[in-house]
Design a protein around this nucleic acid. Structure first.
Lengths: 184, 184
DNA sequence: CGAACCAGTGAGTGTACGTTCACTCATATG
DNA sequence: CATATGAGTGAACGTACACTCACTGGTTCG
């Protein structure tokens, strides 16, 4: 058994990053330990930090994996649009995003990342991911700046609703906020 | 000198809560220690937790103080509206909010709260504050549900831009997102 | 065979944190 | 003066965490 089946460190890194996505999505950066990630990845803590030398690098790796998945979903969604009208393309991407975050993992990781964006390395990775999303949405939809801005703004509203569990709560204010949102 | 000048615990609590707002806004829930809050309030850590028996209660107290200030700003802003047209009232409230969060303290505290809303006590306090904002915006502006929803969505976009420091960054994507935003 | 290498780990180290507790000191009142 | 009350603290306790390091066992190749 050579390279092809034996898991070298290089091959292992993405699976550990995927485990980090799940673990950090639960507890956020400060609320998640390297041991938590190790448990999720089914390896020892020591090996986690051999693969990603600091906790910050581990988190940014998770964040990049998160944005990779989001971009892929947006691309796939855009392909299903019934016309090339900008609004319809953006709408198809929104549908795809809503479907992607049915399990809240990727959404929560972004929320947590936003809250530790003051850490330089993490802030940079977060902005890089945001840039990818915004420029892709703009280029692919060929919509106006306003339409793309609205696309992001309502995405953020969606993050708020899910993070705060507004859907599970009664009251007219909650229904006002969730009206028309597709992430259920 | 009796009650009026001597600082009793009851009188001290709000000033400690205000210190907690500042401290937690910097580091978030998990990234801020009780000693940080104590330093900010210029008292000992032990006395902080005598005033607020657990870290969670301390954080929710800070969060409530934060929403108090936001509501007050929205009310004051609505009073300055040049007409009673719903859109103009909402616009005046948005201006007032933008002015309030010129220093990023209250904004960042909300972002951090959103990311630890899974902690039941904190999630409940966060939803309570959100409910106050939404119902006030709706009742005072007498706008449509859609207008109020948009008001909140673009508020969340504003939080994203500030938390991630998008204003300080070059690139067309950043300018697209910040276009028309007033929080500078 | 043996030497070099690499995936992966167990056990530790130093530090920092939330919370507790016994205490001090100032004031207030009888 | 004596006693009580409550503001405020110093020092400790137990735990938990990021990160280190010396090590094991398997594989590769001369």
């Amino acid at each position: 058994m050579a390279r092809s089946t034996l898991s070298t460190a290089e091959l292992r890194r993405p699976t550990v990053a995927a485990a980090a996505v799940r673990a950090f999505a639960r507890g956020g950066y400060h609320g998640t330990t390297i041991a938590d990630v190790a448990r999720e990845a089914k390896i020892s803590p020591a090996y986690v930090i051999k693969l990603f030398p600091t906790k910050e690098k581990l988190f940014t790796a998770a964040l990049e994996a998160c944005f990779d998945q989001i971009l892929a979903a947006l691309e796939a969604g855009a392909d299903t649009a019934s016309s090339i009208s900008p609004d319809e393309v953006l709408d198809a991407m929104a549908d795809a995003y809503a479907a992607l975050i049915t399990d809240r993992t990727l959404l929560l990781l972004q929320v947590h990342a936003q809250s530790v964006a003051e850490i330089p390395e993490i802030g940079a990775a977060f902005r890089a991911g945001l840039e990818r999303i915004v420029t892709y949405a703009k280029d692919r939809s060929r919509g106006t700046d306003e339409a793309v801005q609205r696309f992001i703004a309502f995405g953020q509203l969606c993050h708020l609703l899910v993070a705060a569990n507004v859907q599970e709560v009664p009251g007219p204010w909650a229904r006002l906020l969730t009206a028309g949102m597709r992430h259920l």
